[in-house]
Design a binder for these strands. Sequence first.
DNA 1: CTTGATTCTTCCGCGACGAAAGTAAGTGAC
DNA 2: GTCACTTACTTTCGTCGCGGAAGAATCAAG
Lengths: 386, 386
Amino acid sequence: MTPVAASWLPLSPGERSVAIEVLLGGPLSRTELARRLDLSAGSLTRLTKPLIESGLLVEVPEAGAPAEVRQGRPSQPLDVVAESRSFIGFKITEDMVYGVVTTLRSEIVARYDRPLTSREPAEVVEVLGEMTDALTADHPRLAGIGIGVGGLVEDRAVVGESPFLGWRDVPLAELVEGRTGLPVVVENDVAALVEAETWFGAGRGLDRFVVLTIGAGIGYGLVLGGKRVPYAEEDRGFGRHWIIDPNGPLTPDGARGSAVSLLTIPNIRYQVQAATGRDRTYEEILELAAAGEPMPARVIEEAARALGTLVAQIANFVLPQKILLAGEGVGLMDIAGKTVADTIRALRHPLAAPVELETKVSDFHDWARGAAVLAIQVLVLGAADA
Amino acid sequence: MTPVAASWLPLSPGERSVAIEVLLGGPLSRTELARRLDLSAGSLTRLTKPLIESGLLVEVPEAGAPAEVRQGRPSQPLDVVAESRSFIGFKITEDMVYGVVTTLRSEIVARYDRPLTSREPAEVVEVLGEMTDALTADHPRLAGIGIGVGGLVEDRAVVGESPFLGWRDVPLAELVEGRTGLPVVVENDVAALVEAETWFGAGRGLDRFVVLTIGAGIGYGLVLGGKRVPYAEEDRGFGRHWIIDPNGPLTPDGARGSAVSLLTIPNIRYQVQAATGRDRTYEEILELAAAGEPMPARVIEEAARALGTLVAQIANFVLPQKILLAGEGVGLMDIAGKTVADTIRALRHPLAAPVELETKVSDFHDWARGAAVLAIQVLVLGAADA
DNA sequence: CTTGATTCTTCCGCGACGAAAGTAAGTGAC
DNA sequence: GTCACTTACTTTCGTCGCGGAAGAATCAAG
């Protein structure tokens, strides 16, 4: 653990649940909160008082639209002061560091990226430090930093193993804390994105929720009971052994016909190049497929069927309330969404509840935002794993 | 809900957690309970006192083997009085009713089966009533009845739809309560087996646990956070659309190459008969396969690969701590277990935690026992869904 | 202006818990 | 034996968090 970051104030369990509910549920009156949290009205007066005094919550002047004219004393909605603290989120890639500043609500208010010239831990820490310095100038009320890294992260502090950075057991949180003086949370990038979507995104308030990311690789995140389930092979080549079609294409990465070989961007590009002799970007391939060019269309069609199979299997076994497709490689949903949907339908029981599927193309700033959410969770609300 | 069954006594939440912990965890001292439930020693004195006075718990004279010689005052283990109440569990099949009497610990102390000559609800209720009368003679302290039925069960009381019985919206719990005067819990049979395994069997104390049953059909049970996840297509032909091999066999039931067509007993028998022209029992087929007879061996081999695929997919996506294979059709694990294991390994990430797989051949009395466990949960501990 | 509805606050009492002190029941050293 | 020590359990007491009831605030409707 990081050296117990400066939480806003020691929140009691009751106060914390109120704070989180308002943070995630928009402005809410005390009565509404009492209903949602199954507490009495009196308890809500008690719990909200210190939160308001500390400046975390404020009474807002009634929602703009008095939709329904109600009798009785009007309710007094409470809202978090989103700007009262800022958070930095970093996503470290092979050659870039993407940075964002967010509010307490995880709205991005600034972006700042820097190329990475060296992958030496000391150098990276220095880049992060300089970026933090620059961002601090414009955003003084910084409460903490979250960092997302591809690879295995331990205790939300130490990068245990990151192949693309060539790191082993780098105590990144400690180093950045020493450089910046701010509390730091480090997490695997997929895990951070999953947490962010669970708190502020597609998975808000859900009990069973799955995130599937498609990009340079495949990422899988399982959220049960509002908590992400960690697993051993996390972010060390996930999906390489999910065989979808034993006769599928053979690609440089991943087993033959695996999710990785059928769906990731590098392997789709590889397949098209192998068939046509020309290297094209992922976007170009999607356009060509949409235009009916045979080979790209076939590769994309096959990828769509693979994705549908994957989603159907997940839906059948995990029974999630929602599946989020994220990452840079979900563009195929736009042009082959029907194939995906048809495949899913064919592999599900007719009586089964339809899969709620959401697609969200994410860029690197979304990954950085995910890391910032980790900081919000841990530093402000002290909800390390709640 | 059943008309609020006579719970032993109104248990407070704290008392209930103590009672369940002792019931599931064998004899436990107060200190050990305090550790497990994260309570103070003083609280345990308070919580156990009424439980002992009511006769649910007793102090037992120290575990037989004083394994380690410890200093200090010896601990005073507490245990449930397993015989203080009895429970009946029924499993209703097409042509039989299987009945068991269990202790509070769900140990079977008596069995009694009766053929079913009619499937009229009134007739079935009468058979259940007569069986209960007979069992009451030998086991006077009956606290309640649990009934497991294949089909859709609503509110643990009403059989919403049961194709093999030809029932629709039969308020079975109410009817049997009227006939016997005992509180009754009705549940889908797979669900009951899953609950039983979660509480007293392979899934004891686990957070993520999967039960896969193979018999006349395929059953799937998902337990997350100690609670079974219900789903829409439950027991209405589950696994018919889990396509494992698109080029697999075509069978009377289930889509081509589905889990149902590859694994269920009727379809394995069908495949062997179609290939050899002779109808054989499942046991005979297994023996022939073990002896090297080509066609049965091939069918069983294919089934084993299908099972391995299924288990690997479940393990990959659900990340369970354990998977239990149950039912009458898991005999193939004995002679083709290696194929299953090899298939699982091939479809999992090398770094992934090995799948903990347990096999348990269950007969109809195990299904009946599952129903009795439901009665224990609901009637004694009032843990309807805890 | 009164009545009623609805939200929020204040106040009180209850119940569950933990901390600390006390009691019980053993072991080991001499 | 007895004295110190260890561990298990009990008792007591203060605290905390909650719900319930009564009251205050603030609106609409008649």
